[in-house]
Amino acid sequence: MSKKLNILFLASWYPNNLLPFNGNFIQKHAQAVSKFCNVSVLHIIAHNQDEKFKIDTAENNNVYEVIVYYRKINSNSPIHQFQKLKRRQEAHLLGYKTILEKVRHIDITHLNVVFPAGSFALYLKKKFNIPFIISENWTALLENTPTQLGTITKKIVQKTLDNADVLCPVSEDLKQALQKLTANLNYQIVPNVVNTNTFTFKEHSAENKILHISNLKDEHKNITGILDTIKELSKTRNDFFITIAGNGDYHFFNQYALKIGIQENLFKIEGAKSTEEVAQLMQSHNLFLLYSNYENLPCVISEALVTGMPVLTSKAGGTAEMITDENGIVVPPKNNKILLEKLNYMLDNLANYNCKEISKNGINIYSYEAVGKQFLAIYTKLLSK
C-alpha cells in the first residue's frame, strides 16, 4: 500500500491532564505506529467539571491526540449507570467527529486495552464496518491477580474479544489467559516498545549497582521481599549498592529498610522519576532487579535490556519470555532464599554478560521501528482480506 493508512488508536488508558502517566505504554505504541501510518488517538475520561464536555487536541511526536473530558456522574444508581454509559458514548462520538475533521476517514480501529473503550470499537465496526484489533496489556485478565472482573464487565470484555479481527496480547502468558475468555483464534503477540533514542547503551561501571524501578506497590512488586533479601545479602558481603525508585510510598520503604537493619551506605530509596531519569539510572547501574508477585510484560525489563543491563526477575506473567541465559535469570516469586542465591551469583558474574549484545538484541525486539513494522504488517494483512 503506497498511501499511508489512517489508524484510530482508541485508548482505554492514555496520559492526560488528570493522570499524566496513565497508559504511557499505549502512547509509545501510537508513536511507533506513526512511523508508518497516520495515527489519531481518542481517549475519554470523567472529571468533576462544569462543562458537560471539554475537548483537548494536540500533535505529539507525529500523533494527533484527542482527549475528551466529560462531566462526572457520581451516583451509582441504576438510572445514573445508564446515564454514565450514554455520556461516555457521547464523549466518544464527539472525539471521533473531531478526528474525522482532520483525517476524513479511518481504515482500522486499534483498540488499546479491551475495557472500557471496547464498546466504541464494537459500535464503529457495526455502524461503519471499520475492523478493529486489540492490543492487550491488562493484568486484570490474568488468573493470578487480585483484581477480579465483575459479571457485567466480563460479558462486555468477552463480546469485544469475540468480535475483534486480531488480538495482540503483549505476551504468550496473556494470550493463554485470553484463550480462556474467548473462542477468537486470531492472535499475534506484539510486545511493548522502548524509545531507543532515550534508552541507549552506555558502558556500565564495574561496581555492583542494583536497580529497581516500579510503582512501589508492595502487594504487586514485593518491595519488602527485595529489602529482606538485601538484608540477608548484607550479612555476607557489602560490595554492592541498590537503588529503588518509583511513584509510590518510598518513605515507608526507607523506614522499613532502616528498621530491618540494612546499612545506610548500601541503599537509596527515592520517589518518581521521569523517563529520562529512569534511562540515566539504568545507564549508571549494572543489574536490574524485579521481584513481582504478578506481572504482564513489564516495560522496565525491556528498557533495562535495551540499555544493556542483565536482569534478575521473578517468573510472573510474561517476564520469563523476555529472559534468556544470555541476558539474565528468572526466579520463582515469593522465594527469598532462591532470590538471594541468584543475586549472589549474578553479582559475582556480571562481567560475564555481554552488555552490548544484550542491548542489540533488545533493540531488535522492542524498538519503535521493530514494533511499528509488526503492527503495519497486521493492518495490511487485515485490509487485504
Rank of each mutant, 00 (worst) to 15 (best):
S2M: 12
S2R: 09
K3I: 13
I7W: 10
A11K: 01
W13Q: 08
Y14W: 03
N17H: 07
I26N: 12
Q31A: 13
V33W: 03
V33M: 09
C37E: 10
V39S: 01
S40W: 08
L42Q: 00
H43Y: 14
A46Q: 07
N48R: 13
D50H: 11
E51C: 10
K52D: 14
D56Y: 13
N60W: 06
N60C: 15
V63R: 11
I67G: 04
V68R: 11
R71E: 11
I73R: 11
S75A: 15
H80I: 05
Q83S: 09
L85Q: 15
R88P: 00
E90W: 06
H92C: 14
H92K: 01
K97Y: 09
K97I: 04
H105S: 14
D107I: 15
I108K: 09
L122N: 07
K126N: 01
F128C: 08
S135M: 02
E143I: 06
E143K: 14
N144V: 06
N144Q: 04
T147D: 14
L149P: 06
G150Q: 11
K155W: 13
N163M: 11
N163T: 11
A164N: 12
V166K: 07
L167V: 07
C168N: 09
E172D: 14
K175W: 01
K175V: 00
T182S: 15
N184L: 09
L185H: 12
N186E: 15
N186L: 08
V193C: 14
T196Q: 13
T198M: 04
F201T: 02
E203G: 03
S205V: 03
S214F: 11
N215I: 04
H220E: 13
K221G: 13
N222I: 00
K231W: 09
E232P: 01
E232A: 15
S234Q: 08
K235I: 11
N238D: 13
T243E: 13
I244Q: 00
A245W: 07
A245Q: 05
G248Y: 07
Q255Y: 14
Q255S: 13
Q255E: 12
Y256W: 05
Q263T: 00
N265A: 00
G271L: 13
T275M: 07
T275S: 08
Q283A: 07
S284A: 14
N296P: 01
L297K: 11
C299M: 15
V300R: 01
E303N: 05
V306Q: 07
V306D: 06
M309P: 05
P310I: 13
P310Y: 03
V311W: 04
V311A: 00
V311D: 06
T313F: 05
E321V: 05
I323C: 02
T324I: 07
E326P: 03
N335L: 10
K337C: 03
I338K: 13
L343S: 12
K356F: 08
K356D: 12
K360R: 12
I363M: 04
S367T: 11
Y368H: 14
E369G: 02
Q374D: 07
A377G: 07
T380K: 10
